[in-house]
């Protein structure tokens, strides 16, 4: 039996292929999540009563149920009404919808922390509501939400492992497959865990330096 180190090198290519699938899922899901999050966050502050109610139901339904159920509904549930989604896209859409609900809360919190004078001043120079939201509120909201947003990215990376349970061939699935071949299950998952840790560490470092780079004094 080879040492852990040799074994690691042996199975690394397969695991890394899985990891690249993980990153693809996360990247697509986070984009979908931002789009939903910004829209829903803005709608819950600025839109009318119906939109508010609708968005609130969405946010609380997502936050009140496990991501796993949401993925199962998309992948195993929808086919019973004739809608078929591939496991990859089920993972992307499921995680995106999930992330959108949480992100909308970051954005909403960020908007509410912007002082009301900003809107007032924007209106006083003749901007209409849409212009004021677009060029004054949204830029400030995005910067304020950045720290919680990098948190969100960590969460997405970690929870993308759930895609394994709807048969997406990502990192977890690759680990499972390798251990079925080599019977060295413990070491394989340990290695997968290390890869997750490294990805999370790199991404969080990168985001921190991004945060510092686009930092605005006083915001």
């Amino acid at each position: 039996m080879t040492s852990f180190f040799e074994y690691a090198i042996e199975i690394a290519p397969v695991l890394l292929r899985g990891a690249s699938m993980t990153l693809q899922i996360v990247a697509l899901a986070i984009v979908l999540g931002i789009a939903l999050g910004v829209l829903v966050g803005l709608a819950r502050v600025y839109a009318g009563r119906t939109a508010y109610a609708f968005c609130t139901v969405y946010v609380e339904a997502i936050r009140g149920t496990p991501l796993l159920v949401q993925l199962f509904l998309l992948y195993f549930g929808l086919p019973s009404v004739g809608i078929y989604i591939s496991s990859f896209w089920a993972a992307v859409i499921g995680m995106g919808i999930n992330s959108g609900a949480y992100q909308s809360e970051y954005f909403r919190g960020a908007i509410q922390s912007i002082r009301s004078g900003q809107m007032l001043a924007a209106r006083s120079i003749g901007m209409n509501r849409r212009q004021a939201i677009q060029s004054i509120i949204v830029p400030q909201m995005l910067r304020r939400a950045l720290p919680s947003w990098s948190n969100e990215l960590m969460y997405m990376i970690k929870y993308s492992s759930l895609a394994y349970m709807i048969q997406t061939p990502e990192l977890m699935a690759a680990a499972k497959e390798m251990s079925a071949q080599t019977f060295r299950t413990f070491e394989t998952f340990l290695l997968a865990g290390l890869i997750y840790l490294v990805i999370v560490a790199i991404v969080s470092r990168a985001l921190m330096s991004l945060e510092n780079r686009i930092k605005i004094p006083g915001l």
Binding site: G117, Q118, L120, A121
Partner: peptide, 11 residues
């Protein structure tokens, strides 16, 4: 309009 607390756009 000029406000008491300035309300410059912080970003």
């Amino acid at each position: 309009m000029v406000f008491q607390d300035f309300n410059l756009f912080t970003h």
